[in-house]
Design a protein around this nucleic acid. Structure first.
Lengths: 338, 338
DNA sequence: TAAATAAATGTAAGCGCTTACATTTTGTAA
DNA sequence: TTACAAAATGTAAGCGCTTACATTTATTTA
């Protein structure tokens, strides 16, 4: 038994009786090589089962065709669809995704960014805008392209592909107000270092204010991201001595928890209490009654983000700010208060 | 403005007036260096903001502290919890996850495996057992550790951390039979190149056979993995001229679709029709009525898989077959037929 | 105090690739 | 046929790190 060594470029070159440069060219710039040698070399490549060594390639070529993404969590449908689309678009362009999750921690995210850059990521997908300035300069110093997604900001120095969380939330709230709601309660994900959550709450507050409803004393519970968190927070709101007629949730997962809890408490939705979500993940359509929520074009966002990122790699000065539209999904969980 | 170059080991060495070897040792084997030099070097590392170049490190050290995982899809809660745990456990050990998705295609998976190996993955997490033998020899030739998860097989030459899909499915079916069900219908994910789906169906068939219920003509619809697919398949089953009293779904996502469709068709669950799922993802608890399903310890699986993989990197001959228990979750969606 | 041993550090040879530049081969026009 | 340009191929210098081995410095022992 001879141990099967991993073949290198050299092995291929020797076997094909050409120089390593030619082999490299066959692989990377096929048309700079005569078709005769190309065929010969590619055959050897195939016979030997040669695969280029990534580290060596990265070291020599200073690019990796690898892109990094850091999401707050993988354990959550909110990011899944967008990421999947992002990955697919990269794949279509011969690039690979390196995925890390930060568990909603700014410090962890920073580490992950450094680690991905060290690993030679050609570009980065970042969720949301809120992070330490120095991490932005870190990326800019190294000329690492990045695009911010899930949030929109009008900043020509940075690319983003996202949507206006504030505006969408404002509209949904206005709708509720127009239906006659006056007693609001909010369940939100922790809003420090999460500008999506922050802006969604801000949108609610602004809508209340514009309609002369007290937003100073808006009952607001911030919690984690699980269904269970949503249930508990909902319970707390309902049992408070100033029971709301509507509970607006920062995202569909929390809303799902709220709905579940409402059932357990014997509350009819929307007769006894209205509940709204945000994101319109698939889950929203399964809940009974169907959730009134904000539709976000997650897939498109992922795809476009990948495209912008790839363009930025080609042209380091390219920037784009893309605001995707959102749309209120009329479920059955929001109705006029009784 | 001087352009900020990315600092290298050499820069650090020069600045700290030591050799590159010493810097490298400070970083990798701190205790082989006097505390005096170590402090001095680490300070420079920090001041310069030095991060080792991954490619160079991989090339020279022949390990990357990177592990790859290939999942059928990210767009699905079924894999999310397990993966998250896998990633967290790797993180705890200073390793990073490279994630790819195969879109349920065997060819794509094979490509991804090669790509991850080329990228220097120290080990791989694979979902399910079913794949071309040659891809296994590819990995074995290169001595790349891998562990199979989500499935269990008794094979001492390969590590796996999973559960017995066949057995769990058998038990759930038996339970339904004991309740009095005789007319079964099944919605399954495509079972070719998906041994989980295959074995779950097989478990159902075996249970039927063992109880003298015709399993040859079991109505079975294979479809994709979305809620929508579940809805459509459910509709088809109900509208068939041999309407079942129970629809067993290969996973919770399909079951969610089935439940949704049942509501739309005005069918009461479980009075008019029983529905079961598999996986017990968070979604299952939100559905009305709560889904009767099979609980799988996804988080534990991800964590243990990471541990086994890490051990295998240390000791290339280490193997382990771990079968995690499953448990039937008694929801409200399964009851005796009326 | 000198010799022997252990600890700390340095030297330099790669790891497997890409690519600027040099050289050879082929094709073309006069 | 010759001269020259264009195309194809080869040569070899790194890319930034790790690590075996050599050398220097500190510590211990007799």
């Amino acid at each position: 038994m001879n141990k099967p060594e991993i073949p290198t470029l050299d092995d291929v070159a020797k076997e094909a009786r050409v120089s390593t440069a030619t082999v490299s060219r066959c692989l990377n710039f096929p048309d700079r090589v005569s078709s005769k040698t190309r065929d010969k070399v590619l055959k050897v490549v195939k016979d030997l089962g040669y695969t280029p060594n990534f580290g060596a390639q990265a070291l020599a070529a200073k690019r990796t065709n690898t892109f990094g993404a850091i999401v707050p969590t993988m354990n959550n449908a909110i990011f899944a669809a967008g990421l999947q689309a992002f990955q697919e678009e990269l794949g279509r362009n011969g690039a690979t995704l390196l995925l890390a999750s930060s568990s909603y921690s700014a410090e962890v995210e920073e580490e992950q960014i450094r680690s991905l850059v060290a690993r030679g990521a050609d570009g980065l997908l970042l969720i949301g805008t809120q992070r330490n300035e120095k991490i932005y300069s870190f990326l800019e110093d190294r000329k690492i392209p990045y695009v911010i997604s899930w949030s929109y900001q009008d900043d020509k120095t940075r690319s983003c592909v996202g949507f206006d969380n504030f505006q969408a939330s404002y509209e949904l709230t206005t709708k509720a107000i127009n239906l006659g709601h006056k007693k609001f309660a909010v369940i939100s994900a922790h809003a420090n270092s999460n500008d999506r959550a922050y802006n969604r709450v801000k949108g609610i507050r602004k809508a209340l204010k514009d309609n002369n409803i007290d937003e100073q004393n808006l009952p607001l519970i911030e919690c984690g991201y699980s269904i269970e968190n949503g249930s508990q927070s909902f319970k707390a709101h309902i049992e408070s001595n100033n029971r709301p007629t509507i509970v607006m949730c920062g995202n569909d997962v929390l809303a799902a928890g709220a709905v579940k809890q409402a059932h357990q408490m014997g509350l009819k939705i929307p007769e006894d209490i209205s509940i709204t979500g945000f994101d319109n993940i698939e889950l929203a359509s399964v809940i009974e009654p169907a959730l009134t929520t904000v539709h976000v074009r997650h897939k498109r966002m992922g795809m476009v983000a990948a495209q912008v990122l790839l363009k930025q790699v080609e042209d380091k000065s390219y920037r784009e700010n893309i605001k995707l539209e959102t749309r209120i999904i009329e479920g059955k969980s929001l109705a006029k208060p009784s």
